[in-house]
Simulated assay, not measured.
Amino acid sequence: MPTPPAAPAALLAEVSRRYAAASPFTRHYVRLKLRSDPATAAILALAAGEGFGHVADLGCGRGQLALALLLGGAAARVTGLDGNAVHLAEARQAAAGLAAHFAVADLLAAPVPDCDTVLLVDVLYQLPEAAQMALLGRAAAAARRRIVIRAFDPGCGWRSRFGWAMEVANRALRGAGRQASIRPLPLAAIAGPLAAAGFDVTVRPCWSGTPLPNVLMLAKRTDG
Rank of each mutant, 00 (worst) to 15 (best):
A94P: 11
A99S: 13
A151I: 11
A143L: 01
R150D: 10
L136Q: 07
C115D: 09
L136H: 05
V104L: 10
P113L: 00
V118A: 02
F152M: 02
F152H: 11
A100R: 00
P113R: 00
L107R: 10
A99P: 14
T117V: 04
L120T: 10
Y125M: 07
L119I: 06
A95D: 01
R144C: 03
A95P: 00
F152D: 04
P111E: 00
A103S: 13
A142N: 06
D106H: 05
E129M: 14
A100L: 00
R145A: 13
L127Y: 09
G97C: 13
R138P: 08
Q126W: 00
A105G: 09
M133Y: 13
D122G: 11
A151G: 12
P128K: 04
T117W: 01
M133C: 12
L108C: 04
R92A: 15
L98N: 02
A95C: 01
P111R: 00
V104R: 14
A131T: 11
A103P: 03
A109N: 12
E90T: 14
R146H: 07
R92N: 09
A134P: 10
L119C: 04
A91K: 05
T117Y: 02
E90H: 12
A94Y: 07
V123K: 05
A91C: 09
L108S: 09
A94S: 11
D116G: 06
D114V: 10
Q93I: 03
A99T: 05
A96V: 04
E129R: 15
A141E: 12
L127I: 07
D153Y: 08
L124M: 01
T117F: 02
I147G: 14
L124V: 05
I147R: 12
A134E: 15
E90G: 14
P111N: 00
R144V: 07
L136C: 03
L120F: 07
D114A: 15
A139D: 10
A105S: 08
Q126K: 01
A134R: 13
T117D: 08
A151T: 11
A105I: 07
L124T: 04
D116H: 10
G137Q: 08
L119A: 03
P128T: 11
A100V: 00
G137H: 08
P113M: 00
F152N: 03
H101G: 10
D116S: 09
L120A: 11
Q132H: 05
A140W: 06
R138L: 02
V148H: 06
A131S: 15
V104I: 09
R145D: 13
C115P: 12
